[in-house]
Design a protein around this nucleic acid. Structure first.
Length: 277
DNA sequence: AATGCAATAT
DNA sequence: TATATTGCAT
């Protein structure tokens, strides 16, 4: 599958090229995943290509005592594994160009990083979309350019704490889901689970419910539930709430959050449409 | 009752 | 401006 002729090329060079190729393929794979419906075969093709290359890489790299190199990124396995639901939309201008080459440093890990370093990873969140895609394409016709001017600050909530004056990084890593006995977070926004019935609905003025703060942890649970259910398009508020097992969390709250999530997805796919076109 | 969508509030 | 809440039609 690869195009290098065995003989002449330097071995390391070969490896490097192969690796780069895989990365390029992965980039593209991510891009078209949004359009799985429209381009199922393309996705399939790319996926297979990636697999082949990986295989080749690993076969020819056994003498590399280590690991890295071509360990698999697992992440975007097309097996249908639903992935990350969404990330805050934050396309900071400059969309279509640079995403392709250069970057390679970061691996598409599980982006559970609510650390402090995850700030300007540019289009990082962008590489984790998933496959459902809503049908209604408001503008299937490319006749009309449809200049949807995208508000630059567009986006939706920032699941990750953008600010946290005090003790921000007490627990840098909390990856594990640990649904049971979740002791996670704690620190400030502790509106998550523990909330018993001490709910002092501070209905100071009106009868308006106090705003539910979707802390990163809470959001994480939300995503997890969504993942289990198969995506925001099929998941229903109630199911999500049940899976989250966060008591005190109301159906409406989940519903609302889901709405935002869907909206973000929409914006996301739209955005990519433009990038691709 | 549960949902999705849109208006409205903070 | 962003995002959570409430209202309303299914």
């Amino acid at each position: 599958m690869m195009m290098f002729k065995s003989g002449d090329m330097d071995y390391t060079q070969k490896m490097k090229r192969c690796h780069e190729y895989v990365e390029a393929l992965e980039e593209e794979q991510k891009k078209i995943q949004v359009f799985q419906r429209e381009l199922p075969l393309c996705l399939e093709l790319v996926t297979q290509a990636i697999e082949s290359c990986r295989k080749e890489l690993s076969e020819s790299s056994e003498h590399v005592g280590g690991q890295s190199e071509c360990s698999e990124r697992t992440t975007s396995e097309c097996g249908g594994a639903v992935f990350e639901e969404f990330m805050p939309i934050k396309w900071s201008s400059a969309s279509s160009d640079e995403t392709d080459k250069d970057e390679e440093a970061e691996k598409t890990e599980m982006m559970t990083n609510e650390n402090n370093d995850g700030d300007k990873k540019k289009s990082d969140w962008l590489r984790s979309v998933q496959l459902w895609n809503q049908s209604p394409d408001p503008q299937p016709n490319n006749k009309k350019p449809m200049v949807i001017e995208v508000k630059r600050s567009a986006g939706a909530f920032q699941p990750f704490q953008k600010e946290k004056p005090k003790a921000a990084d007490s627990q840098p890593l909390i990856k594990a889901i640990t649904p049971t006995s979740t002791t996670t977070t704690s620190s400030t926004a502790e509106t998550v689970g523990g909330g018993k019935e001490f709910e002092e609905q501070k209905q100071s003025h009106s009868n308006r419910k106090q705003r539910r703060c979707w802390s990163p942890e809470l959001h994480r649970r939300f995503l997890h539930a969504l993942q289990q259910l198969g995506g925001s398009h099929v998941a229903t508020p109630k199911q999500i709430r049940d899976l989250m097992k966060v008591d005190g969390l109301t159906n409406d709250e989940v519903k609302s959050h889901l709405q935002v999530t869907k909206h973000n997805h929409f914006m996301f796919s739209l955005q990519h449409r433009f990038i691709v076109l």
